[in-house]
Design a protein around this nucleic acid. Structure first.
Length: 420
RNA sequence: GUGGGUGUAGCUCAGUUGGUUAGAGCGCCGGAUUGUGGAUCCGGAGGUCGCGGGUUCGAAACCCGUCAUCCACCCCA
């Protein structure tokens, strides 16, 4: 038997209503906030991701699905959505468009990681990018949208954490301070963090290993190295969140994994998720557009993990199953079967939801299927009915039965619906 | 990449210190006087016991390997 690929899941019909609810809620809120949908390719030239996400990140170093095209160029299945969106923005010179550029997207992402609860190799994200606005209110708007989507779905036990990473220059100034502090006694750090001191010292701050947390407790804080401009910007973001009553918690340890973030970073986690507890996260990335060859363009955005949302949704609200079918056509016997097929089609053309189980030969088994399919009515058509030119419409709850002329089924049934 | 748990019917799981044709519940199909559903009763279909070796007179069970899956580390949405 050919099986699906490790870490790649099927979303079966029982689950799709839940997914639709999530997707439609996200889409609806994004549109309400003035975002427009963009659809970008699922694979891109490898250098796009290497350059935007950061060459020394785990994603680029060991998690990308990279392969060669026939002409030898290196292509990669997108591990996240921002790079492709920004590439499209630059490529189509959207910066020249005077309107605020606010996009949302959703779709599959790919990362070669070890599968775990809430972590898959093909997973789905809903993301938004607000391009061209450096006003703190743009940050607030983005965070508000994120919070609204999650709250609207009633997802449990959510916490929004926010931090200020400052400008690149601020981090440049802070980095040596932190490094010299950390190198004082490297022995206290976990193996990973010892390496990080060299490669990406800021990441040491949000290491979960208790020893590392203790070691960094008294470390110099990025907040103290921030420029006045960065502080002022962040203060405005905070004030904005307060004014529209978005609950948040400051977390000076919050350092995002992707290289392109600056100033505002944020993350929403839930305690109901297990180890992979981030539902959504994002931040400002003012330098990225320029890095990718576009004009200097400020930007903020976030991404939501759809399967993590789906996990949480199943705990709280069981989503209604697909709406019940309306008419079950029970066609049996030689003449009945032939007529039934035509009637079935006619009902559908008339906009009526109609089903039938072609395996059933007896009226009894048809009725069982009708019951199982949750149909409100069953239209019974046997040879006798064909001879009479009238089928029998049975209301499955009241068991009342009425003759329906086969010559004008769809019209007669429609009027019958309105009557009942 | 590392560690631990689990692999028996479509699903959830039993299977006693290794012992005959491997079971249950649910689901599925059929029947209970000839064309009327859900309940009940009866019957039926469906399993290479993940796979490959090994130990044994005998393995679903014990040993080794392997694969899959889940959870955790790591990392992240």
């Amino acid at each position: 038997m050919i099986k699906g690929i490790k870490g790649v899941k099927d979303i079966l019909p029982e689950e799709t209503p839940r997914w639709r609810l999530i997707e439609e809620t996200a889409r609806q809120w994004a549109v309400r906030y003035g975002f427009q949908e963009i659809r970008v390719p699922i694979f891109e030239v490898t250098t796009l991701f290497a350059r935007s996400i950061g060459a020394s990140t785990d994603i680029v170093e060991k998690e990308m699905y990279t392969f060669q095209d026939r002409d030898g160029t290196s292509l990669t299945l997108r591990p996240e959505g921002t790079a492709g969106t920004v590439r499209a923005f630059v490529e189509h010179n959207r910066a020249a468009d005077p309107l605020p550029q606010k996009y949302f997207y959703m779709g599959p992402m790919f990362r070669h990681e070890r599968p775990q609860a809430g972590r898959l190799r093909q997973f789905h994200q809903f993301g938004i990018e607000s391009l061209g606005t450096s006003d703190p209110r743009a940050d607030v708007e983005v965070i508000a949208l994120l919070w609204r989507i999650l709250s609207d779905l009633n997802l449990p036990a959510l916490t929004l954490e926010i931090n200020n990473l400052g400008y690149t220059a601020d981090r440049e100034a802070y980095r040596p301070l932190l490094v010299s502090y950390l190198t004082q006694d490297v022995e206290r750090l976990c193996g990973n963090c010892r390496r990080r001191v060299e490669t990406n010292p800021l990441r040491v701050l949000d290491c979960k290993v208790p020893e590392c947390r203790a070691a960094t407790e008294a470390a110099p804080r990025l907040a103290d190295s921030l420029s006045d401009k960065a502080r002022a910007y962040f203060a405005d973001v905070i004030a904005g969140l307060d004014s529209i009553k978005i609950p948040y918690r400051l977390n000076h340890r919050l350092v995002r994994g992707l290289d392109y973030y600056c100033l505002t970073t944020f993350e929403v986690t839930s305690t109901s998720l297990g180890a992979q507890n981030a539902v959504g996260a994002g931040g400002r990335y003012d330098g990225l557009v320029e890095t990718l060859g576009g004009p200097s363009t400020p930007a903020v955005g976030f991404a939501l993990g759809l399967e993590r949302m789906a996990m949480m949704l199943s705990e709280t609200a069981p989503v209604a199953l697909p709406g019940s079918t309306t008419v079950y056509v029970a066609a049996f016997g030689n003449q009945g079967s032939v007529t039934g097929l035509a009637v079935l089609e006619e009902l559908r053309l008339a906009g009526i939801r109609a089903v039938s189980d072609f395996r059933s030969g007896s009226l009894k088994s048809h009725l069982r299927q009708a019951d199982r399919s949750n149909s409100r009515f069953t239209l019974m058509i046997g040879d006798d009915e064909v001879a009479k030119g009238a089928g029998i419409l049975r209301d499955m709850t009241t068991k009342a039965q009425h003759d329906i002329s086969l010559a004008s089924v769809s019209r007669d049934i429609s009027s019958f619906f309105h009557a009942s």
